[in-house]
Design a protein around this nucleic acid. Structure first.
Lengths: 181, 181
DNA sequence: TCCGGATCCTTGACGTCTAAAAATTCTCGC
DNA sequence: GCGAGAATTTTTAGACGTCAAGGATCCGGA
């Protein structure tokens, strides 16, 4: 955190002046800053308390739910990240002895990933602390507000999913210029 | 997107079974997945339509609000990222001719960053499209729901800020093991 | 059988992010 | 003036993240 910019020094919320007629944009910006605020704090605490990272924690959380293990693809889908990304995180967790990879008997292309005993124990500890942190961070929120927010966010998520499922006109796919040395 | 894992293949929402007594944790997980959903889509569209990235767009958005420019630190604070990070993004935007750096007359340590004419024009176009996308994604949401959500998220954000401002016991700061070659 | 396509995963190039250390420059008490 | 310390930014090392390309394997017909 030593060098991290201090948002409290900024005169106001740079999320609030998007105009009155643009509630959806404002909603998005607020969602973003809210998530960012919590995420950064959790990331820092995970590093300080457990010498780990959010992606590692998230991956272990998914594995903890499925004792028999998950394939790389299933894991990637759950984490909503690319397969290539998952490869790297699993690699590091294996190096730390928290996770195990097993090549499938029936399909040699596919490998199953699962928590080791050490990994399961480590996750248990971290998960408890993690939830305590979340409770702490949202502690000021009334239970009724929490429930209402939960429900509205559910609706928002559904709305976005619906919109994403509806194919768009596909506006002239412009090729990338960058990405070539 | 070619290789990106498909979340729709996942049996259900892996965000919903955190238990009934843990609303705050559920709230956090839902917040996270909601943000992620929108963020990934916007990121993809920015790449396809404008050959740019979210961080570049965000940085330009901040500069667009302050025609006279911002120092690196001020910019970092507004973006809520580290100074080192800002350095890299600004570098690339300068290379693209969208942003300009000026060393301060009164303090040679500090540099002011501002949009070029080209950058301002590019941002104008992108910002309009960006808002249209957001409107599209949240389009299914009732205006009343949007307003309610906006207000509740404001409360949530305030709650988190309050919690962050309250100094914690500072549980035994464990030193990092990694981060040494 | 054998070959073309699909599937699973990893690799490679690049961009974004952090924390911490290093490099500059400024400020201020003496 | 001068030197200690503060302030501003860049640099560095490493972890994530994307997409696209490649390698291995599997499967389903001719």
């Amino acid at each position: 955190m030593a060098e991290r910019a201090d948002p409290s020094q900024v005169p106001a919320d740079y999320e609030t002046d998007a105009g009155d007629r643009h509630d959806q944009l404002r909603l998005w910006l607020r969602l973003l800053s809210c998530t960012f605020l919590v995420e950064n704090e959790i990331r820092t605490r995970l590093a300080q308390s457990f010498d780990t990272t959010l992606p590692r924690f998230d991956l272990m959380a998914q594995l903890d739910r499925v004792p028999e293990g998950l394939t790389m693809s299933a894991l990637s889908a759950r984490l909503m990240v690319s397969n290539g990304n998952t490869t790297g995180i699993v690699e590091r967790l294996v190096a730390e002895g928290l996770v195990r990879r097993t090549v499938s008997d029936t399909d040699r292309r596919s490998t199953s990933v699962s928590l080791t005993a050490k990994g399961r124990a480590a996750f248990k500890t971290m998960a408890a602390q993690h939830e305590a942190w979340i409770r702490e961070l949202f502690g000021e929120l009334e239970p009724a507000q929490t429930k209402r927010l939960l429900s509205l966010l559910g609706a928002a998520k559904e709305a976005v999913r619906t919109s994403l499922a509806t194919p768009r006109p596909a506006a002239a796919p412009r090729r990338r210029k960058r990405a070539k040395a």
